[in-house]
Computed example of a mutant assay.
Amino acid sequence: LMFIWLRSTLPQFASYLSSFQTDPSDPQQADKMFQQIPTVDVLVNNMGIFGPMAYDEIDDATWERFFKVNVLSGNRLAKHYLPAMLAQDFGRIIFIASEEAVMPSGEMPQYSMTKSMNLSLAKSLSKLTVGSHVTVNTVMPGSTLTEGVQKMLDDMYADSDLPKDQWEHDFMINHRPLSQIQRLIRPEEIGRLAVFVASPFASSFSGEALRADGGLVPTIF
């Protein structure tokens, strides 16, 4: 897994990029990363796993794996990097959740649970930043055409006679009918929102769950 952080020397923002390959769900690997990159100004917790699963087929080991990767990894990084952000009075922590956090589809309960936890964790951490220029927020994408979702589509339609260029439309109609845009969101669209939330311009909100779901969640709140 490759993680890239925006690093800066305040007051200049974004002075250089630094990267480090690791798996933060492994405490030992995370410790090595902390030695290599002791501080960051922007932390985007984008690591996650998902997959459709029937509830009665999910064993305890699977529940624990999803919790470890989707929740504890981001918490481990936030716990390490937040104190330095507070000390310098600037920082951004962004959790990438999902519309599944507030509107579970029932297709993957083990995933939905962890995304709801992301919202709760981000809100709790934001309480530690009161009065500072450090913010903690969550971005909730709708169904997005990531590599994982593309693989899911490949598996779903492997035995279908439907042409590949119609898979996305068929998926949205039959599995995400509430979407207003009726297409899969592209990763760069979520990336642009995350860049704004990470910037000094996004200074007026913290502890927020910011939806970018294509209108999939059918409520105004």
Rank of each mutant, 00 (worst) to 15 (best):
N70R: 12
V217W: 05
E188T: 06
S105T: 15
G191S: 14
G48A: 12
Q88N: 14
R65A: 11
K151G: 15
S105D: 13
K127W: 04
A101W: 02
Y16T: 09
A54I: 15
Q110G: 07
P11S: 09
G148R: 15
F221P: 00
L210Y: 00
R211E: 02
F90S: 06
T22N: 02
N137W: 00
M2G: 06
S105G: 14
Y55S: 13
E147Q: 14
L178I: 01
W63T: 05
N70E: 08
G215Y: 10
A202E: 02
W5I: 00
G148L: 13
M117L: 07
Y16L: 05
Q180E: 14
K164N: 13
Q110V: 09
L82A: 03
Q166A: 12
T146D: 14
P141T: 09
T129S: 05
N45A: 04
Q29F: 01
G106A: 08
T22Q: 06
F90Q: 05
P177Y: 07
D161E: 13
T144C: 09
S105W: 15
V44K: 00
P218F: 12
K79R: 10
P52D: 09
P187E: 12
M33W: 13
D59I: 06
A212E: 04
W63R: 13
R192V: 03
F3T: 00
T114Y: 13
M103S: 08
T135I: 01
Q88P: 15
F13M: 07
P200V: 10
F50G: 03
D23I: 10
Q29V: 03
I94R: 00
V44F: 01
D26P: 03
L10R: 09
R65Q: 09
N137K: 02
T22D: 01
G106I: 15
Q110I: 14
F67D: 04
D26N: 13
R192Q: 11
D89K: 09
P24G: 02
Y55E: 12
G131F: 04
V71Q: 04
A14N: 08
L72V: 02
M108P: 07
S126T: 07
S120C: 11
E189P: 08
T9E: 12
V130Y: 04
V102E: 11
I190G: 01
P218Q: 11
H169A: 15
S206D: 03
I190C: 02
G48W: 01
G207S: 07
E168P: 08
Q166W: 07
